[in-house]
Simulated assay, not measured.
Amino acid sequence: MGWLCGGLRWAEGRPALGWYGGGAVREDVRRVSELTYGGDVAFRVASAERRCVGARRGGCPLRAVVPGRSSGGQCAECARLDRSRSVAADTMADDPRPYAVYLAWFGPGMVKVGITADERGSARLLEQGAVTFTWLGRGPLMAARRTEELLRAALGVPDRIAYKDKRAVRAALPARTERAREIQEWHRRAGALAGWPESLERAPFEAVDHAGAFGLEGLRPMTGVVTELAPDAVVAGRLLAAAGPDLHLGTADGGVVVLDTRLMSGWELAGADGRAAGVSVPVKSMERGVQGGLF
C-alpha cells in the first residue's frame, strides 16, 4: 500500500508531515511523521502521477491528475468545493462558533489581519508562518469579519501576504523586542479606531513569538526554492527551519533550499538516502534570480 503525502501539519506547535494511505486521500487513514530540526529530510517521488488531494481531505472522486507546480494540489472541482465552504467566501454566516481576530507579523512592514475559529487557537498562525502575532478580539463570525474589514479599510492592513515575500525575510529578522514593538503599535492603532462591532470582545496586547517554534534563530539565507516535484525526483537535506508550509533544507553543497510542502501533496513518496541523494528537482536560484539547474 502506497502513502500519499498530505503536506506539512503543525501539531502542538511542532512540524510534521501528514500521510494518507490506500491510494486515496482519506482523513481516517492518516499517519504523521514528526520532523526534527537538525535531522535529515530525504525522499524520492515514487509515483508516476500526482493525484488531487480532494476537498476537505475527503478524497477526489475523479482521482484527477494535477500539475506538479500547483501549490494547492487540487483539481478545479475540489478547489471550488473547498472555496465554497471557506470562511473567506462568506458562505458560513450562520456558523455559531466564536471567532478570533488577529494581527500577524512576518517581517518589517509586513503585517496582516485575519480571523480564525477560536477553538483552533494559534494553529492558523503557525500554518501561515506568522513570526509574531497578537489577538485583537473574539466574537461572532460576522462581527469578526466586520472588524477585519474595518482594519483593511482604515489602516490599509492586507488580509494576505505572498509566501515568496514571507520566506525572503526569515533569515534577516530584527530582534524579538523590535518585532513585538512593531506589532504593538499596529494593535494600538487598531484599538483607536471607531466602528468596532459591539459584540466583539477586545483582547489586550500580548505578543506571541514563533521564531523558536520555527527554528529561525541563526537561519542562513536561502539560496534556492524548489519549483516542482516530478517522478523519480529526489529531495534530501538537513532540516534547518520550518515555517508555514515551508521547509528550509541545508544541502550537501552548502546551500539552503526552501521546499514548499504544498508541492508534495498528492505524490506517493518513498524514503531516500539523505547522505548520497542530494536534490534532483528544478530549483529557482535566489542568488542569480533565474531558474537554476538541478542541485
Rank of each mutant, 00 (worst) to 15 (best):
G2V: 15
W3K: 10
L4I: 09
L8N: 12
R9C: 11
A16P: 11
G21E: 09
G22A: 11
V25L: 06
Y37K: 05
Y37P: 02
G38R: 08
G39Q: 10
A42G: 09
A46S: 12
S47M: 03
G54M: 08
R57C: 04
G59V: 08
L62C: 02
R63M: 11
A64I: 07
G72T: 12
G73Q: 11
G73A: 09
C75F: 07
E77Q: 14
R83S: 02
V87Q: 08
D90Q: 13
M92I: 01
A93I: 06
D95W: 03
R97Y: 01
R97L: 05
R97E: 04
A100D: 10
F106Q: 02
F106D: 05
T116Y: 02
S122P: 15
A123Q: 05
R124C: 02
E127H: 15
V131T: 08
G137I: 06
M142R: 13
R146Y: 01
E148C: 11
L151F: 04
Y163W: 08
K166N: 11
T177M: 00
E178Y: 00
E182L: 08
E185V: 13
R188Y: 03
A194C: 01
P197S: 02
S199Y: 01
L200E: 04
A203M: 12
V208A: 14
F214C: 10
G218F: 04
M222Q: 11
M222D: 02
V226K: 01
V234Q: 14
L239V: 14
A242M: 07
L247H: 07
L249N: 08
M264K: 07
W267H: 06
E268Y: 11
D273L: 02
A276Y: 00
V283D: 06
K284R: 15
R288G: 15
L294T: 14
L294M: 08
